[in-house]
Amino acid sequence: MNTKNLFWAFVALVIAASLLYTFTGTEDPEYYRSTIEAERERQWKFLKYNIDSPLKEEQKEDLDSLDFYPIDPDYKIRARLEPVADRRILEIPMTDGSVERYIRHSFANFELQGQQVKLLLLQAEDETDLRNFFLAFADKTSGEETYGGGRYINVRQDGQSSLTIDFNLAYNPYCAYNPDYACPIPPRENILEIPIRAGEKNYDK
């Protein structure tokens, strides 16, 4: 094959790969891993250096790293959105006994570990972007491998009636680092009977 034909064969390969990614959602594994690692690094730097970090100064000095499960692409799932029939304001209990108001917006339906899962998506009352949701959940690792009060994921609707939930991005609430903070407790709909070994583990003081 001459140089010209080799060039056009390469171009055709690149186009085919681009189309495959567009129509199947295929993602380069290394790019995915580096994206998750970059977010974890950003999270660590925020806790370590940011003035708004929940950590006390002595905690910041001692914080060399955060503890995460290994990145597992199987925990990045597509979920079908199901609107809540009685969409209303829900008062979510906080760890200090107070309540915080959220809109009881939609359910995310998907399969994980061979089980059908249905999680309640909440939306802040003052949320200006109506495609953004707050997901608070607890699972079989809570209180042992992960924080007992559950973990959070910020999710965004990226389809007409679907969204992506990536448990590799699950993070601890502020109260996991500092009990002076009050954090929303996961609603009963989001207490999972399966272990979610993805995302951030318990904070080691």
Rank of each mutant, 00 (worst) to 15 (best):
L122Q: 02
S98Y: 05
Q43N: 14
Y75I: 12
P73Q: 11
F110T: 00
D129P: 01
E91P: 00
G114Y: 11
Q43V: 11
R101V: 07
K60S: 00
S142M: 09
D129C: 03
D86A: 15
K140Y: 01
Y69T: 08
E39N: 13
T128S: 06
N109G: 02
I77S: 06
D139K: 04
F134P: 08
D72C: 11
S53E: 07
Q115H: 07
R33M: 13
A85G: 10
I36N: 03
T146V: 14
E37I: 13
D86P: 14
T95I: 11
P54D: 07
Y32K: 12
L121V: 12
Q123R: 07
P83T: 02
R131V: 09
P83Q: 15
L47T: 15
A85F: 00
Y31S: 14
E30S: 04
L120W: 03
L135Y: 05
T95W: 11
P73V: 07
P93A: 01
S142T: 08
G97D: 06
L119C: 00
F134I: 05
Q59Y: 09
H105W: 08
T35C: 00
D74E: 05
D129S: 11
E125I: 11
R42G: 15
E91K: 05
R101Y: 07
K45S: 04
R40G: 02
L47G: 03
K56Y: 08
T35D: 06
F110E: 01
D126Q: 15
A136E: 04
D139H: 02
H105Y: 05
P73F: 13
T128N: 14
N50F: 12
R87M: 14
I103Q: 10
Q113W: 09
P54K: 00
Q115G: 05
A85P: 08
V99Q: 05
S142F: 12
T146A: 00
A124F: 07
V117T: 10
S34N: 01
R87D: 09
L119G: 03
S142V: 14
Y75V: 15
S142G: 12
D96T: 11
Q123S: 02
